[in-house]
Design a protein around this nucleic acid. Structure first.
Length: 324
DNA sequence: AACGCGACCTGCGAGC
DNA sequence: TGCTCGCAGGTCGCGT
């Protein structure tokens, strides 16, 4: 489900619920959700219990919570004070269907509940943070925080730390990140020998864009997904990046306004999809831009990278050899 | 470096 | 009704 706007909605929601609270106990109901935690469920739970959540930070679609030992915890006897334990974080990736929900203890377990974290009491706030995931493409795991020279995780974190989760250090900044550099993006884009959509989906080049927003951005910029990246003019690259930024900003606003319940809802932007998508899922339906110009051009659906791509055959013509 | 593909999973709707 | 098929917004790792 989630692309950048959905993950950011979750992050913003989570911050207010979990920052400063201590994880008191962990239930792993399905170890498959910890696939990326190599040391197994016992190690996962053992390291989390007693840890305090410092913040909720995002890079692309990766979300993590830097952790600290609770003050007063005895230091591990085998560790000298001058050699403190490395900084760690609880990492979450939502995959296709993951959700992070704040729930009161008396709410029955969700059908696809995978991991439950109990948190220290904090006023009327729900006690549990639940990871629910139908398809299990997402997951939780612990990762170290390593120094970065690029100014921290960025994203829209409120208190960026000069550390980044190791497992997210290969992820580029996203177009909404204030430190995103278009010049650097364009330089790397031009150096690639690939198609434009493949590049937009490459989280190491620009992050946060998934299949839906890629199609929406390409439609808005009137560019075809197969356009060779080494032929893109600066103005065209700027157009598609601005389009991605616009589409994701709108989705974020829609998700943000519908976020008002006791839990953090990954589906915050689902209403947005119905109303505002111009390309994705609109096979056979008339292109709205062409319709406004008095033409009827039904959108095409094609297989590309083992998934569906939606384009208008008239205003996003497929590049032909040497001519576009 | 870039690609195409399979792997990882469950569930839903369409069609027979 | 029950079966199969295709489809779903992500990422990783392999062989070429």
């Amino acid at each position: 489900m989630p692309e950048l706007p959905e993950v950011e909605v979750v992050r913003r929601g989570l911050v207010s619920w979990v920052r400063g609270r201590t994880i008191t106990s962990v239930d792993v109901l399905d170890p498959r959700s910890l696939r990326r935690h190599a040391l197994g469920p016992e190690d996962f739970a053992g390291n989390l219990e007693g840890a305090r959540v410092l913040d909720v930070v995002r890079r692309g679609k990766f979300l993590w919570m830097p952790l600290a030992d609770t003050p007063g915890d005895p230091a591990p006897h085998n560790q000298a004070p001058h050699n403190p334990a490395p900084a760690v974080a609880l990492m979450a990736h939502l995959g296709m269907s993951g959700q992070l929900l704040m729930q009161d203890a008396r709410v029955p377990d969700e059908k696809h509940l995978k991991v439950r974290l109990r948190l220290s009491a904090a006023g009327d706030m729900p006690e549990q943070l639940r990871f629910v995931d139908q398809r299990i493409f997402g997951g939780l795991f612990l990762t170290s925080l390593i120094p970065t020279d690029d100014g921290g995780p960025g994203g829209l974190a409120e208190t960026p730390l000069p550390l980044i989760a190791e497992e997210a250090s290969h992820i580029a900044r996203d177009p909404l990140d204030p430190h995103f550099s278009f010049d650097a993006f364009y330089r790397r884009l031009r150096a690639r020998k690939t198609g434009l959509k493949r590049a937009l989906l490459d989280q190491g080049l620009v992050s946060g864009i998934g299949n839906i927003y890629a199609d929406e951005a390409l439609w808005k910029a009137q560019l075809h997904y197969a356009r060779p990246t080494d032929t893109l003019r600066r103005a065209e690259a700027l157009r598609v990046l601005d389009a991605a930024r616009d589409v994701m900003t709108d989705a974020l606003a829609a998700g943000g306004t519908s976020f008002d319940s006791l839990y953090v809802n990954v589906n915050g932007a689902s209403g947005y999809f119905e109303r505002s998508l111009n390309a994705y899922g609109r096979e056979g339906l008339p292109c709205r831009r062409c319709a406004a110009a008095g033409r009827v051009s039904p959108l095409l659906r094609e297989q590309f990278m083992n998934r569906s791509s939606y384009t208008c055959p008239v205003c996003q013509p497929r590049p032909r050899n040497g001519r576009w």
